[in-house]
Design a protein around this nucleic acid. Structure first.
Lengths: 182, 182
DNA sequence: CCTCGCATGTAACACGTTACATGATTCA
DNA sequence: TGAATCATGTAACGTGTTACATGCGAGG
């Protein structure tokens, strides 16, 4: 067994391939799934996905089949028993990292030297961005309503609530600053 | 002027040095400030801070003074007018990136193959971690109450609300799963 | 015919963390 | 005396994004 350590992206792959009902997926498919579901709290690029697929295959955790029958060239992957086992191990691990990098908040934090006007403008922009994101998430949630199982549904609800919270904070902060407008 | 592009860490440094009342700060000081204020939505390590201080100085945006009078060797930095200008520019920029990487949520999302019991255990662990973080934040907020100006205070409130939201989501999710316990 | 989406990949770069090295001062 | 904190740094590593290259197939 070469190189025994896997990135979170590897577990995302195993996660999608390891769902109860899961069909075989290509690297491209996986990217689509990531972008339309976990994207708001976990991103993954092709630059990570394709190399990781190779690595997982080399380690016998997934199996690839060339599916080039008439259609476009395409390699579909399925999870193996060893893969399921590793996925399960990962799911049960404790100590999960939570990282956030919020440039908007960072700017807000240091915005004391701006004028009230400028501060309010910035907060409104932040609010609008979040609203746009919320709308997108709503689409995803609506579209997949009933199609996806319990846990993913709960996690989508989490995302909706989170964005709503951010928006209402912006609103409160704006009102607060407007009230103090001297 | 060599290399004209600065990382977010550079702006954090300028931010702390550029506050109205700001005293000169060492690299060590800045790390302390980061860890005790913006840490929950933006981290920075010594490995980023020290090189960035050098770079900012080379570009004339901050000025360092060796403060080795009797005490430990220590270099304190102050912001220059050019630095203030760049900081202001950055504060007014739009298009702020928001990145999140939440391993716990990721695991939850894929937890469909675990038993109800296991799922609930995981959620409880997540809840506890968040509670601990919330407590830490409360300490910071309490400690700095009145000491820090408007904007930072608002941002701290944001953090408190965010963590409370996460916790109540965990609670709801747990109740939900317990209700379905078949 | 041309554009869009499907499909696979890689190389260069940017970003960040960790571990390590070093040494002074303070306080119990 | 020994541990903790102040203080400054760097090298190695790991992770993640971007830009690019390539080509097929479907539909307007």
């Amino acid at each position: 067994m070469p190189d025994d350590r896997f990135s979170n992206v590897a577990y995302v792959i195993l996660g999608f391939l390891g769902k109860e009902d899961a069909e075989p997926l290509s690297g491209y498919d996986i990217k689509q799934w990531v972008d339309s579901s976990v994207r708001f709290f976990f991103a993954a690029s092709y630059g990570q996905i394709y190399p990781e697929l190779k690595k997982l295959q080399r380690s016998g955790l997934i199996e690839g089949h060339k599916e080039s029958t008439g259609e476009r060239a395409r390699t579909e992957y399925e999870i193996t028993d060893a893969g399921r086992e590793l996925l399960r191990e990962w799911l049960l691990q404790d100590g999960a990292r939570l990282e956030m990098r919020d440039e908007g908040l960072l700017r807000t934090f240091f915005a004391g030297t701006l004028t009230r006007e400028e501060q309010i403008t910035k907060l409104r922009a932040m609010r609008d961005e979040r609203s746009a994101q919320l709308a997108e998430l709503h689409d995803v949630a609506e579209y997949s309503h009933g199609l996806i199982p319990d846990m993913p549904q709960l996690v989508l609800d989490y995302g909706l609530g989170l964005h709503e919270h951010m928006i209402s904070w912006c609103d409160r902060a704006i009102r607060e600053l407007e009230g103090r407008k001297d």
